[in-house]
Amino acid sequence: MIHLEGICKTFRVARRQAGFSQAVKALFRREYALVHALRDVSFSVSKGEMVGYIGPNGAGKSSTIKIMSGILTPDRGKCQINGLTPWEQRRRHAASIGVVFGQRSQLWWDVPVADSFLLLRDIYRMDKDTFKKSQDELVTLFQLSEIIQTPARQLSLGQRMRCEIAASLLHRPEILFLDEPTIGLDAVSKIAVRNFIKQINKERGTTVILTTHDMQDIEALTERIILIGKGRILKDGSLADLKKHCSSFKTLAVEYSEGDPVSDAYIANLPGLSLQSAVAGRAVFTLDTQTLSVSSAVTALSQRAELTDLTITGATAEEMVVSLYKEYQI
């Protein structure tokens, strides 16, 4: 259903340096740098899948979403979605996708949400019955009945996000792109938004592609993860596989009363053990159990310091990502 092959994209940006003399210099000559936003990105997604697309800021997530939704044209490569090339058959393609940009609103700010929905009905050329059915369905599912008559500007961020997602689903798109849908939401709203996405995927069979920095989103929603860094696809696999790959990593937190394992040269040079954070009397390490066993790490630490407390925890999705970023140096 979605098929990307060898997508490349380069941007040219002006380089700007700080300082007064540099500003004067830039008055006459500007330097440009080439940024390779995407290099040879390929993947396929089949119908009904939910895919988490992750990577640090500036890795190329948004560029990929923009290419798939027809906003950007890549320099090279092929992209077929439902048999269409998004940037060439933009309008036909747009009718079958929904896009949510987490940081930007698509609702008209000063009128009730219902009015925005009505306008969207006309923009997407829906007939009355289809629209009504779809809207009723979404209102029930997202529990919008109480807020649909409120102007968007008076809604809380969580309520607004529910309306945003509903707005992009009105025309029953086959694919939903979500660019950081939970950004800035409180814990309760986050969970609600996740549940809605899950339900839509289940009930309408909508294919969902989601970018996020929140690993709980990933854990709650997706089975498959695509990791991108510096414009390249680094990993593409199931969440379980990735976790297995990372399960050799443990977090080791110690509290101590005497000695100093933090600045100790022996500990610092121990392969497989690296310091995450430290405050006086407490240190947190990441331990790679394939290089160093738990018992030898504990032994080494207790030789160097008088330990008063010790906890060992396995990797969460969060830590998994941190270790992946570290592994690929992105």
């Binding site: 939704s69 036909r92 940009f101 997407y124």
Partner: peptide
């Protein structure tokens, strides 16, 4: 961007 993802 929003304009470009709409079928008009």
């Amino acid at each position: 961007d929003r304009i470009l993802v709409r079928p008009r």
